[in-house]
Design a protein around this nucleic acid. Structure first.
Lengths: 139, 139
DNA sequence: TATTGTTATACTCTATAACTATA
DNA sequence: TATAGTTATAGAGTATAACAATA
């Protein structure tokens, strides 16, 4: 094994674990969203809409391009879950949930809360430890 | 705030942190791979090829469809990093790195080992703790 | 008949660039 | 002139289904 291999192995083991945990969480989210009739990305957008928000704010929250928010908003609208409304500044469009959207959001959040999570295997203390470590990593 | 909201918030905080850490690690990998002239997915495939391996084995390692391995192998070949060789069982094709591929793999692994990692903010003890927690989560 | 890999194809996610309307 | 959102389009990543060769 070449010289850098050991270092590499060490440096990567933890990262690999993180990827696996994240992937499992993502798969779980995709499944639950699917059971609610939503794609993962639409589900994620839905969850950001606790309050009506301008499109560009949603883009910032999702860390994506504004043009993609247009696509997400179209999907939410076509499913009857959200509507666009013009803001005071008439360039701005507020995206806000319809009653059906509110209900779908509730259902999704409830399903997530009710189902098992990646973190279910940890007790309260371990969760606190993990939180602290992750927050430290994020600086 | 509706009833399920609190539970949801609690259940999701940790998951959100995990996603953020994983995303940061992924971005770092994408950047380093890019500096080596590789896409993230080709870089990942390259790292699996410490030994020549049948295509279907690579599919299993990467947890992807065999047809996608064909695409990855094509990309590796077109960059002169790997070659296909027929196996003893003549249905099987072994994918193995060329000298240039070995070198690229070394370079990538070295760059990962040398650069800062998401885990750099942790000391050795914290890394052990994190490893234990993540392994517990993965069952 | 089952397995390996390939082909053709298609879908999702997401971005870039050019555009319109408003400020 | 700058900002918000939209359109048209393109690219990456990945899968499915049908297929050829081999076992």
């Amino acid at each position: 094994m070449p010289a850098s291999e050991d270092q590499f192995t060490e440096a990567q083991h933890l990262t690999t674990l993180i990827f696996r945990v994240a992937e499992r969480a993502k798969d779980a989210f995709t499944t639950i969203a699917g059971e609610c009739g939503l794609s993962a990305s639409v589900g994620r957008a839905l969850l950001t809409l606790e309050e009506p928000a301008p499109m560009h704010t949603i883009a910032a929250l999702l860390a994506c391009d504004p043009s993609y928010v247009t696509s997400l908003a179209d999907q939410l609208e076509s499913q009857g879950l959200a509507e666009r409304a013009v803001g005071d500044d008439r360039r701005v469009k507020l995206l806000k949930l319809t009653p059906a959207g509110l209900e779908a959001r509730e259902r999704l959040a409830g399903a997530i809360a009710a189902g098992p999570s990646v973190t279910s295997a940890l007790d309260a203390r371990q969760r606190r430890e993990l939180t602290a470590l992750l927050e430290r990593m994020l600086g």
